[in-house]
Computed example of a mutant assay.
Amino acid sequence: MKRTTFLLAAILAAATFPATAQVSVNINVGGDVVRRAPPPPRYERMPGVRAGQVWVPGHWQWNGRDYLWARGHYQAARPDYAYAPGAWVQVDNGWRWREGDWRRAERRAERRHDRHDRHDRHDRGHCPPGQAKKGNC
């Protein structure tokens, strides 16, 4: 009984006083905010295509005082991934560099249609149990 009364009193006390604590979290992933806008991108002629390589375009880099141009370069390709180049993104207080990254590439539509056509010819519309969830029908 005493325990229940104590818990009830604690709950009532907590409910009568408004919470004044506030938590603020600021996560800075892309580096420092630069107050000055970057110059327009330079035109770079991409060298010839290289097998197994992806062209990463050049961009402006902030060195703490000024922008310096970083030339484009080739990078080893990753199977089933596409490269998304980095970019300067405008934020409330200025500009922040968002690094380029690799994103899962979409499957080609032709391959899906070929797979469906192949199954339709053999199965005549029947889908074996469990195959629809796997995308085979």
Rank of each mutant, 00 (worst) to 15 (best):
W62K: 01
V91W: 05
N26H: 15
R111F: 15
T20M: 13
H116E: 14
A70F: 09
K133A: 15
H126K: 09
A21I: 12
A51V: 09
P39M: 05
A82S: 11
A13F: 11
K134T: 01
Q61L: 08
H116V: 14
P18Y: 12
S24W: 12
G48P: 02
R45P: 02
G52D: 03
R71I: 08
V34I: 07
R118A: 09
G30P: 04
M46P: 03
H122P: 00
R115P: 01
R96Y: 02
R98F: 09
A13I: 08
G31H: 06
G48S: 09
G72Y: 00
G86H: 01
P129R: 10
R98V: 14
L8Y: 09
A105V: 04
T5L: 14
K2V: 13
W95R: 00
A76V: 08
A87W: 01
E99A: 15
I11N: 07
H59M: 06
D114F: 08
A14P: 04
A87F: 04
G52K: 02
A19P: 06
R111T: 12
V29K: 14
A51I: 07
E44F: 00
E44A: 00
P18F: 12
K134W: 03
R65N: 11
A87S: 10
W97P: 01
P18R: 13
G31P: 03
A82T: 13
V54A: 00
R124P: 02
A82C: 08
N28Y: 14
E110W: 09
G48V: 03
A51T: 10
D123E: 11
P129C: 07
W88V: 00
R36P: 04
K134Y: 03
R98A: 13
A70I: 14
A9V: 10
R50H: 03
Y81T: 07
R3C: 11
R42S: 02
